[in-house]
């Protein structure tokens, strides 16, 4: 409630976000103290293995994760287009206030464009609805706006395709339609949850190019959630690496790829097969398995798989965020116990 001040170029500041859900087998701490921030006009890549809490983080920002309000902790501070600064976690999750932000100021696109559209409504119907939820304009005007947007996402014969049902479009076309629907209200922030994972490689490149271009055209920020470091390298300016619900390293894309600090980031980078690799040369996967979500390690979550784990230290407590260079932070005891007293409540 206090401390909501943010630098003027900051759009979204996620501070020590925690959430989870109760299953019969136990409580899953899906996001466990994630902190990162998004600047205006910037693309931030959020990387991590499946199950590390990337998607839940994005959905929690929009308050559509379906987790109970009790499980929420931390702050998600967002600068609205009016200039007003709001903690999104404070808003009732189905209230009017957050619904005004959803779609209009923060939009989201999903991994599976097939299932992300209702199969029994035309895409036009669903896009027009998105417009009319936030702008009081007539159906005809909304339709024109929708066709316009479909053209901008390079949908060929947009006037005809607007009346198509999702199953009549190809995967790439559906993802274009999805992007059109998300951007039709000109949001400030686009949460892209693995937008290209379900697509083939050529389409993938087109879609990424499209998102990059629209980002520049519309002057928005993008949070690109992916498990693919290649996607990050191609689109992002800043990268946040997540492991088991925590952001373990955050840096601009160049420093991260050139000088990764956290052992997990290094392991991830080492696991990418390189071009020109000789046949038969072994791949280097990250060793071990992601621990069960019901039984998360105490201390640094990565110590069970970490090649440089220090016995007696790493399994005792969680290292804080240490700044190693300007804008490059890492949470690992190898680099220090954390910047002084800042956000050490956990």
């Amino acid at each position: 409630m206090t401390d909501q001040a943010m630098p003027a170029d900051m759009l979204l500041d996620v501070r020590d976000l925690r959430t989870g859900f109760a299953l019969r087998e136990g409580y899953v701490r899906a996001v466990d103290g994630a902190s990162f921030h998004v600047r205006r006009g910037e693309t931030i890549g959020v990387v991590g293995e499946s199950g590390c809490g990337k998607s839940i983080t994005a959905r929690t920002i929009l308050r559509i994760a379906g987790t109970s309000d009790d499980s929420l902790a931390g702050k998600v501070i967002f600068r609205r287009s009016s200039g007003e600064v709001t903690d999104l976690l404070e808003l009732p999750h189905s209230g009017r206030e957050i619904r005004r932000i959803r779609g209009a100021e923060i939009a989201m696109i999903f991994q599976e464009p097939m299932t992300a559209f209702s199969p029994v409504h035309t895409i036009g119907n669903q896009i027009i609805e998105a417009i009319r939820l936030h702008q009081s304009i007539s159906k005809e005007e909304a339709r024109t706006a929708a066709v316009d947007m479909l053209r901008r996402v390079e949908m060929s014969s947009a006037e005809k395709r607007i009346d198509a049902y999702p199953h009549q479009l190809s995967g790439g076309m559906r993802q274009r339609a999805m992007i059109a629907m998300a951007l039709v209200c000109r949001p400030q922030l686009l949460l892209a949850d693995e937008p290209t994972t379900a697509l083939d490689v050529t389409t993938q490149a087109q879609i990424l190019g499209l998102i990059r271009q629209l980002k520049d055209d519309l002057g928005m920020s993008v949070m690109m959630i992916t498990h693919d470091l290649g996607v990050v390298a191609e689109t992002a300016q800043t990268v946040a690496v997540m492991y088991l619900g925590k952001v373990v390293e955050m840096a601009d894309v160049k420093s991260l790829f050139r000088d990764p600090k956290h052992p997990y980031t290094r392991a991830l980078l080492a696991s990418i097969p390189k071009l020109g690799r000789r046949a038969g040369e072994p791949l280097h996967p990250v060793k071990g398995m992601v621990p069960s979500p019901f039984n998360r390690p105490i201390g640094c979550p990565f110590h069970t798989r970490c090649p440089s784990a220090m016995p007696g230290i790493c399994e005792k407590s969680m290292p804080g965020k240490t700044t190693v260079a300007g804008g490059h932070t890492v949470s690992c005891f190898l680099f220090g116990e954390g910047d002084k007293a800042e956000e050490q409540s956990a």
Binding site: R99, R102, A104, T115, Q126, E129
Partner: peptide, 15 residues
Amino acid sequence: PKLYVTTARAKGMGE
């Protein structure tokens, strides 16, 4: 629990 419901929610539709 299907994704298109989440999409609609993300658009800001009332429940």
